[in-house]
Amino acid sequence: MTDKSTRKYSQRYCPSWENDQCFKGWLQSVPGDASKARCKVGGNSFQVHMKSVIGHSLSKKHVDNTKSSTSKSQRSIKDAMRPIERDPVKIAELRIAVYIGEHASALSVDHLGELLPKLDMKSRTLQDFRMHHTKCARLQKYVIAPSFAVKLRNEIGDNFFSLVVDESTNEANISCLALCIRFYSTSKKSVVDTFYRLLPIENATADTLYQTVKRCLAEDGLDVKKMIGLGTDGASSMIGRTHSLSTLLRVDNPELTLFRCVCHSLNLAASKASECLPIIVDFVVRETHNWFSTSSKRTNEYQAIYRVLENSVPKKVPGLAGTRWLARLEAVSIIIDQWEALKLHFDPSASKERCYTAKTLSDAYRDDQNKLYLLFVRKTLKEIVLIRFSSHKLQMSQK
């Protein structure tokens, strides 16, 4: 590889060249040209000849560049990765991130991060506090959430547990599977109900739900045979008799008990029973809210009428949820309590605004038979809601 003179030269000035000790950290190849080498420290290129390489390593320019690059103080990888256990600033940042995740939006931490250092100029913890929404989100996702997940998994241990499963679509139009878990906590010596996981899914078919739940339990080391209860709504993909999440899980665990949501069942029963009522009843409740929700002028006119009659401010009629029939109880109750004031409001509105909706509502409020229907609906919904709260109270007392 080299002649005698080069070997003597190299052994004299760089005795360890044969073990590549002289070249580590600065010598690298030039891509596309095997006849040249490059100095990483200075950026110089030269011919791949031992005498040229060793000569460059002993040059004053190379020695100065090497000293300047190594004189910079750098922490070792061990020091950089060493966990900071009791740093008050880190503890404060984590606590604020937990608070934001529990009670507020991540964007609000931008203002909070600038406000806290100004509260106490003598506090070193507050002066060193630095956090905006990006850092807050990263702490929640990569530090707090994994820590809570490990803590929850250790707390569950090998105990029996039950799952509450529900599928929904978020604001980004992504289907998600929400899981809540119930288990007996040895440390707290009580039954604990808590949020478990929120998993994205491609679709809400029975096979997809089953595979998602199985994979989630396997990742956390939970045995499906330890699951004693499954709570779901009334969807066919959840509780269907032939092919659903419950039937697939029962293949793995025949002792699994299925609990249908009482609120969903009562809501479905009320929705089905409401089909026997005249359609004008649903029209009155829905359109009364819509009439005032889009116009402040109408709201002010109605409030003036109500003040004359009752000497107070009227309650707003809430909107209706298409899939939650029990939520109509509040709207029905408000309409019945303000029936006379609403009748006086819609009588002149029907002719003044020349609106078909206003005319229909005016005719509906003049018909006392519609009020009787609403009184029946209010009484029936109160009894159903009372059953729902009683069942919920019974579940809470059994913990």
Rank of each mutant, 00 (worst) to 15 (best):
T2C: 12
T6W: 05
Q11T: 12
W17M: 03
E18N: 09
D20L: 07
C22A: 11
Q28H: 08
D33P: 00
V48F: 02
K51A: 08
S52M: 12
L58G: 09
S59Q: 09
S76H: 13
K78S: 06
D79P: 01
R82M: 14
D87L: 12
Y99C: 03
S105C: 13
S108L: 11
V109H: 00
D110A: 00
H132K: 15
H133E: 13
T134V: 11
Y142C: 11
P146E: 08
N154R: 11
G157V: 00
D158T: 09
F160C: 10
F160M: 12
S168C: 12
E171D: 10
A172M: 13
N173M: 10
N173I: 14
L177Q: 02
S187L: 15
K189M: 14
T212F: 06
K214A: 09
D223L: 06
G231T: 11
T247D: 10
L248I: 13
D252C: 09
L258W: 01
K272C: 09
I279S: 08
W291Y: 05
R298E: 06
Y302R: 10
V313W: 08
A327P: 03
R328W: 01
R328S: 02
L329E: 03
L329S: 03
A331R: 01
V332Q: 00
Q338M: 12
L344E: 00
S349L: 10
R354C: 15
Y356W: 14
A364P: 04
D367R: 14
D368W: 07
K371Y: 15
I384T: 04
V385A: 01
I387D: 11
H392N: 15
K393I: 04
